[in-house]
Amino acid sequence: MKQNLPTWLTLLRIALLPVIVVIFYLDAPWARPVSCIIFVLAGITDWLDGYLARLWGVESRFGAFLDPVADKLMVATVLILIVEFDNSPWLTIPAIVIIGREITISALREWMAGMGQRGKVAVGWIGKVKTTAQITSLSMLLYLHDLFGLPIYKMGMAALYVATVLTIWSMVGYMNAAFSDSSTEE
């Protein structure tokens, strides 16, 4: 494992997850906004680690593996927290779609890598937009409270559905790319 700042930022993103969970469950009026702030900071490291790795020329196979794992752990953890808190099918259904897509695409990438065709399902721009939409919507749902008179939680719900549509769109794109020719047949 190459140890450099981008890799450490990715590891920090993973390490912040238990902190988010513990703060989320504290019985204090500041708990949800603080868990949101930590989640946003973790989300910023998602952008920063990749940017720095490319800028400094320290991209590694381990970093390329760990970065999407950290993203998926972040999204799944916060989705589970929010679904448990809200206890609503309006959150549960998008959560199932998002987590199901992440598992499906991870498996697809593993399968394609086994055939030497991982590049066909490399992360594209829609995947990056999808992750940004997920982190934005989950931040709003984590925050919970109104802010400057704006119904942040309701806005987060709407944003979650936008993120869910982007999630499905990106999955269809990856599936099309993977199965675009007969080279993926066993």
Rank of each mutant, 00 (worst) to 15 (best):
L150T: 01
I98F: 06
T92K: 13
W90V: 13
P151E: 11
A70R: 08
P68V: 08
F62Q: 09
S106G: 15
L108M: 04
D146I: 07
L81H: 03
V129N: 05
I82R: 08
T92Y: 14
D67R: 07
L52I: 12
D49F: 08
G119Y: 13
Y143M: 09
G57Q: 07
M115D: 02
L91Q: 06
M74C: 08
V69A: 13
V75K: 10
P94L: 10
V121S: 04
G63D: 12
K130F: 03
L147Y: 15
A76N: 11
S139Q: 08
L55V: 06
D146Y: 09
G114A: 11
I82D: 02
G63A: 02
F148W: 12
L142R: 11
K72D: 06
P94F: 00
M112S: 04
T104M: 10
L55Y: 13
I103G: 01
M155Y: 14
V69D: 08
F85I: 01
S88V: 11
L144I: 04
A76C: 07
T77I: 04
G149S: 09
M140W: 01
P151M: 07
E84L: 15
F65K: 08
V121R: 13
D71A: 07
L144K: 13
V123P: 13
V97A: 11
D146V: 08
E84K: 14
I98R: 04
E102H: 14
